[in-house]
Nucleic acid binder design. Structure first.
Lengths: 125, 125
DNA sequence: ATTAGTTACTTCAATATCGCAAGTAAGTGG
DNA sequence: CCACTTACTTGCGATATTGAAGTAACTAAT
């Protein structure tokens, strides 16, 4: 039982999904992780320029919700990378549908590479 | 060109979609409209209990972004209903993917009726 | 003709959240 | 020892959200 369970808005699966990733930044972070970004600095350097405190907080939340793991990949200096779990990777179809909607309805949006739009959750970085 | 264009975070179709419906309430309202709710009071009475000022504001925004139309369906007293446009209806695949994710990954979420999960955007109320 | 009720909002004060800038800690390389 | 990088954390003013109450238009009952 996660912290959110104390304040459930309802049992609706859409609402419960949104209570994890239905904010301004979380799906952007998941997009970047699926696109191969791994470190804090890589994530912070996206064109949308997420504030660093917000990035740190969202990463902690995503780890607490098991959408990603924080893994040390180097000692001296200790360096960490953020790796999606299956639960995190399985947000890909949501991202793909939002991307399709954006391309169809918001003019001037760039078209994601085909590998992104065609990928299955299991094949993602 | 909509108001948001002045403050574009990037050209990413995901980000631009989220800048319309990536908040706590908008997709909940779209869910309800797709499920056949039409009036302000019907929308306000959902189990998630959206504050009425937030509901009014989101409806105005969705109208401004052409996801829905506010239609008078009765004079004396004047009564309005909110009707999805094709642009609004086409968020259905996003809602379906979020619902699938919620059912797969958040325990205790209810399973939406089959007509909702199987529907095509064109067939929706 | 009052009075109560309904619908569809709007307003307001309190609280929560956000974004920006700056600061910190650990470590490297010169 | 000093500058530099990575990975955050802290402080704080600005902004957004909430819950409660208020308003406006109209209907229906007494």
């Amino acid at each position: 039982m996660s912290d959110r369970d104390q304040f459930l808005r309802s049992g609706c699966p859409i609402v419960n999904g949104l209570d994890i990733f239905g904010d301004k930044w979380t799906l952007v972070i998941l997009r970047d992780l699926i696109c191969g970004k791994q470190t804090y600095t890589e994530l912070a350097s996206s064109p949308e320029k997420i504030p660093t405190n917000r990035l740190a907080e969202r990463l902690k939340m995503l780890e607490a919700e098991n959408l990603l793991l924080k893994e040390q990949y180097q000692t001296r200096p200790k360096r960490y990378k953020y790796v999606l779990t299956a639960k995190g990777k399985s947000t890909l179809p949501i991202l793909q549908e939002i991307a399709k909607w954006g391309n169809n309805h918001v003019q001037g949006t760039w078209v994601p590479p085909e590998w992104f739009m065609q990928a299955q959750p299991s094949e993602t970085a």
